[in-house]
Simulated assay, not measured.
Amino acid sequence: MAKIGTFNSMEVTSITDFGAFLDGENLGSILLPKKQCPENLQEGDSVRAFIYLDSEDRLIATRIQPKAEVGQCATLEVKELTPFGAFLDWGLPKDLLVPFSEQRKPMEVGQKQVVYLFVDSLTQRITGSTKLNHFLPEETDAYRANDPVDLLIAGRTNLGYRVVVDNKCLGMVFNEDVLQPLSIGQRLKGFVKTVRSDNKIDLMLQLQGHEARLDIADRILKELEANGGVLMLSDRSSPEVIYKAFQVSKGNFKKAIGRLLKQNKISQESDRIVLR
């Protein structure tokens, strides 16, 4: 079945002067405008296209990749405020509406907001919401400690940062685990710190303990191999320089260096590390 708000592979049923009509199956015939049609398109060809509603609420297809699809979160800029809500730029000719009822806080033009995209059951329009907890669970049993995850910084609280985890659920990075400046809408890698008894998850930006040393040591070796066996860093380098290179604290970096020295895999000079 074809779905609104996602890419679908559809068969070309007819070609006209203003575009090609695609078989949207349960959604009916859908126009792919001429400017969106591939060269030499023929009836019977299959086209992968994104389905949404145009400004007149008619189903239309496009081969343009939007900044997010239905069921995903994205960081989008507010373009316009209207009596119906805010319109955000999501990369398509028709901007994305976030109704007032779906705004956690009033929006302002120029702001960047983390929104979840869904299809409104009444209008069938693709709609945005900043009330992420209405769509993403805060509890999950899908993770274990130290699992690597993709994070999207969604909000700030007194305790830390609220994050979207793998676009599947919500979690927290507490202040004690924030080792770098973070901003709303930022995407970065992280790890599961712990899964609490209520199945809520806490995240961290770096591995800790033994796992951290193994991970950083492996990355150092790979970086040495990619740079001819020399890395212009040492345990005397500043925390800022180390973080820029490996996104880790100086303490964890020094522990990983110590491990590699004991294993006789590297030697260290005052300003560099050399692969043995």
Rank of each mutant, 00 (worst) to 15 (best):
G128L: 07
S129R: 01
L132R: 04
N133K: 09
F135V: 06
F135Y: 14
E138S: 12
E139V: 15
T140Y: 00
D141L: 07
Y143P: 05
Y143R: 07
N146F: 06
D147T: 06
D147G: 03
D147S: 04
V149I: 13
D150N: 15
D150W: 04
L152M: 04
R156H: 10
R156P: 01
T157V: 11
N158V: 14
N158M: 15
N158Q: 14
Y161G: 01
R162L: 10
V164N: 04
V164W: 02
V165L: 11
V165Q: 03
D166F: 03
D166H: 06
N167L: 02
N167V: 05
C169Q: 06
C169K: 01
L170H: 05
M172S: 02
F174A: 09
N175M: 13
D177P: 01
V178P: 08
L179P: 04
L179T: 14
L182G: 11
R187I: 05
L188S: 01
K189Q: 15
K189N: 14
K189D: 14
G190Y: 02
F191D: 07
V192N: 04
V192H: 02
K193E: 04
T194Y: 03
T194S: 11
S197W: 08
S197H: 10
N199L: 09
N199I: 02
K200W: 03
I201L: 11
I201M: 10
I201Q: 02
L203I: 15
M204Y: 00
M204V: 08
L205K: 05
Q206L: 06
L207P: 01
G209N: 10
G209I: 09
A212F: 05
R213T: 13
L214G: 08
D215C: 14
D215L: 12
A217I: 03
A217C: 01
A217P: 01
R219Q: 15
R219F: 09
R219W: 09
I220P: 01
N227C: 08
G228P: 02
G229Y: 05
V230P: 01
L231T: 03
L231I: 08
M232Q: 13
M232I: 12
L233K: 04
D235T: 14
D235A: 07
P239V: 10
P239F: 05
V241T: 13
Y243R: 09
A245Q: 09
A245D: 00
F246C: 12
Q247F: 05
S249N: 03
S249R: 03
S249I: 06
N252T: 09
F253I: 02
K254R: 15
K255Y: 14
A256C: 05
I257K: 04
G258N: 08
R259W: 12
R259D: 12
L260W: 05
L261E: 05
Q263K: 13
N264F: 11
N264I: 05
K265A: 06
K265F: 04
